Amino acid sequence: MKIAFYGSSLLSSYWNGAATYYRGILKALASHGYDITFYEPDAFDRQQHRDIDPPDWARSVVYPATADGLRSVLAEAGGTDIVVKASGVGVFDRELLDGVVAQSRPDALRIFWDVDAAATLDEMRGDPSHPVLRALDDLDMVLTYGGGPPVVDAYLGFGAAQCIPVYNALDPETHHPAPADPRFEADLALLANRLPDREGRIEEFFLRPAAQLPNRRFLLGGNGWHDKPMPENVRAIGHVGTADHNSFNCTPRAVLNVARDSMAHIGFSPATRVFEAAGAAACLITDAWEGIELFLAPDEEVLVARDGADVAELLAGLSPERARAIGEAAKRRVLAEHTYDLRGQQVHRIFEAHRQRTREAA
């Protein structure tokens, strides 16, 4: 079966946190025999910051971020069995969704894949003409990369035929233990782009502990932090490509995960960083959010902090031996329960179930 997938970027993780998720899910689906084409706009300097070559498990089409470029790629939707519009493409999002509905075959499976459901739902609540809200009657299902029961209930309440979370996971061929790298030496490291709805939480969970522990070393990777005032013991190193993520996770004593405001509020939304760190056997400290125990066991496979004071206390008392034990336990858990192979099996079953319902209704 052919899949046309319209997303932000498969080839670049630059200002594109969904890249790891797309790669993991689509690579796993390809192993089930799906013929996948990923359409991404040439926008936001992502093509100048590619961190993978075009893969052999999907055809990559980079199109100009113009009206003509949009028309050219939407014209291909009609030749596929499954058409996916992901959220957050950043260019022509409304037109892409309208085009997917209009251009796909009547018998095609039409999906909106929401990689930021909390934000999308907030927009829908405030805008009766929101494109996703208008498209729900013509979509067969909504898939999300997080959110759990609150997101499912909200989408069903808006009229979605189905809403199913497909959570982030680990590709053990990509993210795994690696040798330490002196570039990433620190007591606590955080990898996060500077975003308005996460900056306040990073101030609390990362910069506040750094100020409280002036003798500890803190490392911050990600875009946008160059002009942010920080304690002297914080080293900001800018964008870290996915090829360096394993060393980034394996070198520090611990790594930190900080959810965005909306994700923390709605819960059940582990970031890709959670599974990357666990796959590398890193000791992960995460801010508290509902549903964490579905993915990692607090105090055994992950350390959970309610605020910056908790982070400082956890870090101050974290021995190298305990950090290694937590990281190894996390790695065992995600390899057993949270790989993209397993997520791919889940999505394949979702597609097959839809096909079966369609045949029965014919």
Results as ranks from 00 to 15, higher is better:
residue 11 L to E: 09
residue 11 L to N: 10
residue 13 S to Y: 02
residue 15 W to L: 12
residue 15 W to A: 13
residue 18 A to V: 08
residue 18 A to M: 11
residue 18 A to S: 11
residue 19 A to M: 10
residue 19 A to N: 10
residue 20 T to H: 12
residue 21 Y to I: 07
residue 21 Y to L: 10
residue 21 Y to P: 02
residue 21 Y to Q: 04
residue 22 Y to K: 07
residue 23 R to D: 00
residue 23 R to H: 00
residue 24 G to W: 04
residue 25 I to P: 02
residue 26 L to Q: 03
residue 27 K to T: 01
residue 27 K to C: 09
residue 28 A to T: 11
residue 28 A to L: 13
residue 28 A to G: 08
residue 28 A to Q: 13
residue 29 L to Q: 03
residue 29 L to I: 08
residue 30 A to S: 15
residue 30 A to I: 00
residue 30 A to T: 03
residue 33 G to Y: 13
residue 33 G to Q: 14
residue 33 G to C: 08
residue 33 G to N: 09
residue 34 Y to T: 11
residue 35 D to V: 11
residue 35 D to L: 04
residue 35 D to H: 11
residue 36 I to D: 07
residue 36 I to N: 15
residue 37 T to K: 01
residue 37 T to A: 01
residue 37 T to M: 00
residue 38 F to I: 07
residue 38 F to P: 10
residue 38 F to M: 10
residue 38 F to Q: 08
residue 39 Y to S: 05
residue 40 E to F: 01
residue 40 E to Q: 14
residue 41 P to V: 13
residue 41 P to R: 02
residue 41 P to W: 00
residue 41 P to A: 03
residue 42 D to W: 10
residue 42 D to L: 14
residue 44 F to P: 02
residue 44 F to V: 13
residue 45 D to A: 12
residue 45 D to L: 14
residue 46 R to D: 04
residue 47 Q to A: 04
residue 47 Q to Y: 02
residue 47 Q to K: 06
residue 47 Q to V: 06
residue 49 H to V: 07
residue 49 H to A: 12
residue 50 R to Q: 15
residue 50 R to V: 08
residue 51 D to F: 05
residue 51 D to V: 09
residue 52 I to Q: 15
residue 53 D to R: 12
residue 53 D to F: 12
residue 54 P to H: 07
residue 54 P to S: 06
residue 54 P to A: 08
residue 55 P to Q: 08
residue 56 D to T: 07
residue 56 D to K: 08
residue 56 D to W: 05
residue 56 D to G: 04
residue 56 D to L: 04
